[in-house]
């Protein structure tokens, strides 16, 4: 029983990270029909920057805040430099490769800075463990999935009740129509990328105390976050968050009851199967082809 609880809670913690990353992909995709393949590196920027700032004497809160802002700025700049010039093209190769290129550069810089070592990010959330239904967890891990759900709800509030949020929805629905209504589409897209990167960097700051900050900390969450977004239906925010949480839990159960080694194989095979059955993802909207 406690083992099952352990898997569920540990799974929710890592799933919360997938959910936050996937939410970022959802925000970018909705606005631009393009994403940032270096989104995993946004996570790394957040985590690593916070670790460095804390190491050089900043307070934890301030360091994390600044790190998240830096991540947001990264997304904003990257959209302008690497995504927008290729957004109009028929295939996605352009922005895929440019964002991958930026990711390589950022990761390389981080590796040079850290020499490949991981850095700690001390946080009260990992100072001591707590017991929940017999499962041992850090408070930090309990917080992560909650934040993922809050972020999703916050996004909904933003879309419902603010001007920029409504503009985001309009752009997601129909770019040309939105432009005709006087919405600055480019601005909305840039804002969306910045917002997505804020959530990505926040995910990095949240996970860094648990997994340590390192140059490669974003690679797998980035890839899996994207897989989760596609699997959950990239057009649906609740869909990707739910799928993210579920994917984390499934991973833990595979690790627990099959083997650690089978995790990636089972996870990615599951994704392919889901896509074959639900081409638009589990919760995604089906687009009717018009001739």
């Amino acid at each position: 029983m406690s083992t099952v609880a352990q898997y569920i809670f540990s799974g929710l913690a890592i799933g919360g990270i997938y959910a936050l990353v996937a939410l970022g992909f959802h925000i970018m995709w909705s606005a631009a029909r393009a994403v940032n393949f270096a989104h995993g590196d946004t996570l790394m920027i957040g985590g690593l920057m916070a670790a460095y700032l804390v190491a050089s004497g900043w307070s934890l809160v301030l360091a994390c805040g600044l790190a998240i802002l830096a991540g947001g700025a990264f997304g904003f700049v990257l959209e302008r430099l690497a995504v927008r010039p290729f957004a109009g093209q028929a295939n996605s190769i352009g922005w895929m490769l440019t964002t991958i290129a930026v990711g390589i550069m950022v990761e390389s810089l981080a590796t040079i800075e850290t020499q490949g070592y991981a850095l700690p990010l001390p946080s009260p959330g990992v100072a001591g463990s707590v017991q929940v239904f017999g499962a041992g967890l850090y408070p930090q891990e309990l917080v992560i999935p909650v934040i993922a759900v809050i972020a999703m709800a916050g996004l909904r509030l933003l879309q419902r009740h603010t001007l920029i949020g409504r503009a985001m929805q309009a752009v997601a629905h129909n770019k040309n129509a939105a432009a005709l209504m006087g919405i600055d589409v480019n601005l909305v897209i840039a804002f969306s990328f910045a917002l997505a990167s804020l959530t990505g960097a926040a995910a990095g700051v949240l996970i860094a105390p648990v997994v340590q900050a390192s140059a490669t900390m974003g690679v797998l969450p980035g890839l899996k976050g994207f897989a989760v977004a596609i699997m959950g239906g990239i057009t649906s925010a609740p869909g990707v968050v739910l799928t993210g949480l579920a994917y984390g839990v499934i991973e833990k159960f595979v690790e627990g009851y099959i083997s650690t080694a089978a995790r990636e194989i089972v996870g990615f095979s599951l994704m392919i199967v889901v896509l074959l059955v639900f081409p638009q993802g589990l919760f995604g909207k089906r687009e009717v082809a018009k001739v």
């Binding site: 994403v35 295939n91 996605s92 895929m96 890839l223 994207f226 897989a227 596609i230 080694a261 089978a262 990636e264 194989i265 990615f268 095979s269 994704m271 392919i272 896509l275 074959l276 081409p279």
Partner: peptide
């Protein structure tokens, strides 16, 4: 059923599956 970026993800997943099967 799927194309574009969806297909790209399927191929990425395929590559990772092969790599992991080779490891395991």
């Amino acid at each position: 059923r799927v194309r574009g970026v969806y297909l790209a993800v399927v191929t990425i997943a395929f590559g990772l599956i092969v790599e992991n099967v080779a490891i395991e």
